[in-house]
Write a protein that binds this DNA or RNA. Structure first.
Length: 357
DNA sequence: GACTCCCGCCACCGG
DNA sequence: CCGGTGGCGGGAGTC
């Protein structure tokens, strides 16, 4: 409705620059990057939906998306109503391992699910921590709840990951995945919906650098490649390229988006609101205003419009940003280092543990 | 024109 | 009955 940037008076040229609507800037991938950058710190443990929505400047609904996907690889875990714990990357290795075992057990390892095929049984998972009712083994009714669960982002994401972990093909296209994960029903409508969801998932996984978008060798057909955890470490170096500037990304506009509430009615920008406990004092560090994609540059990280550097709003998360580092020219790299270190450490620890058994 | 996938309506659930 | 969740698919951006 009200997103028509071009109806601005001539002297808003400046403002125009920073409000040129770009869908990408609101992508889940970007959101996840910001999510990580804000929450992936030692002093963060629990967080709530509202708080996250406020900090990230998006509506709650989007947080649910992100959180559900992240939960599938245990980056976060749900603790209760409106309460999640941030696990960071620590549990990813373990999580992936579980998913792999589970996937193999469930037959995800079967031949090429890649280019096209309609295998993969999948009827349900068996997530460990929350033992669900033991009674519902194979009632094929698949009623309501089951269906709802089957098509949850959480499960879909896990299954998607399983496909990568268990199959020998390293390229998976979204529609082959959709087909496989749909297990039957060729209903084109269901396919479309499934694919949409896979896009969502793929975006966050890409953002987490667990997968990467490429395309099938011969064709132009897009496909995803599993990078997994190792990739993080080995490509660490590539992340150190010092073109810090190009990695910067200004979100001024969208980060402060608008209404945190679901009602579009009030697009009043004063959503200062509750959830955001702690210091909300306004910015003190103008430079930290822009979001920097550290290791998590979303698929289309290189943005051209970084001209709209500072300007109003977006004061909220900046203080967090601020303390994220003491603002050195290359604090970006530090982030990476820390992150990778963290990650590798977890990975190794996990392996050691595994060995011991 | 096909591919992406954001947006937000609204069903559902747990309290 | 209400607020938190989150499936779902229309349709707008992108390529």
């Amino acid at each position: 409705m009200e997103k028509m940037p071009w109806i601005v008076s001539s002297q808003d040229v400046d403002a125009l620059a920073l409000q040129s609507y770009s869908r990408k800037e609101k992508s889940l991938g970007v959101l996840v990057s910001n999510f990580v950058r804000i929450y992936n710190r030692d002093d963060v443990d629990l967080f709530g939906i509202d708080e996250a929505a406020a900090k990230l400047g998006v509506e709650r609904r989007r947080i649910y998306d992100v959180v559900n996907i992240l939960e599938s690889i245990e980056v976060v875990s749900r603790k209760g109503k409106n309460l999640y714990s941030w696990n960071g990357f620590l549990h990813i290795p373990r999580s992936l391992h579980h998913l792999k075992e589970e996937g193999l057990r469930e037959g995800f390892g079967t031949s090429s699910i890649c280019i096209n095929s309609q295998k993969v049984s999948l009827d349900d998972e068996s997530e460990e921590s929350f033992s669900l009712t033991p009674d519902d083994q194979d009632n094929s009714s698949l009623s309501k709840l089951d269906h709802k669960k089957e098509s949850s982002l959480w499960l879909l994401s896990q299954n998607f990951v399983k496909m990568f972990l268990c199959s020998h093909d390293d390229l998976i296209t979204l529609d082959s995945a959709a087909k496989a994960l749909l297990s039957d029903s060729q209903d084109p409508m269901h396919m479309r919906t499934k694919v949409r969801r896979l896009y969502d998932i793929a975006n966050v996984l890409s953002s987490m650098e667990l997968i990467e978008k490429t395309h099938i060798p011969g064709t132009r057909k897009p496909a995803y490649k599993w990078l997994g955890s190792k990739s993080l470490t080995e490509k660490g170096s590539s992340l150190f390229n010092s073109t810090t500037e190009s990695k910067k990304r200004v979100f001024g506009t969208e980060i402060t988006n608008f209404s945190t509430k679901r009602n579009k009615t009030d697009c009043s920008s004063n959503y200062v609101q509750n959830g955001y406990n702690k210091h909300v004092e306004e910015e003190k560090k103008p430079a930290a205003k822009s979001y920097v994609f550290g290791p998590f540059s979303p698929t289309g990280a290189s943005k051209k419009n970084n001209n709209n550097a500072g300007t109003n709003n977006s004061g909220r998360l900046q203080d967090l940003e601020a303390l994220s580092s003491t603002y050195k020219p290359q604090y970006c790299n530090q982030d990476v280092t820390g992150l990778l270190g963290h990650y590798t450490e977890a990975w190794n620890k996990w392996f050691a543990e595994l060995d011991r058994k």
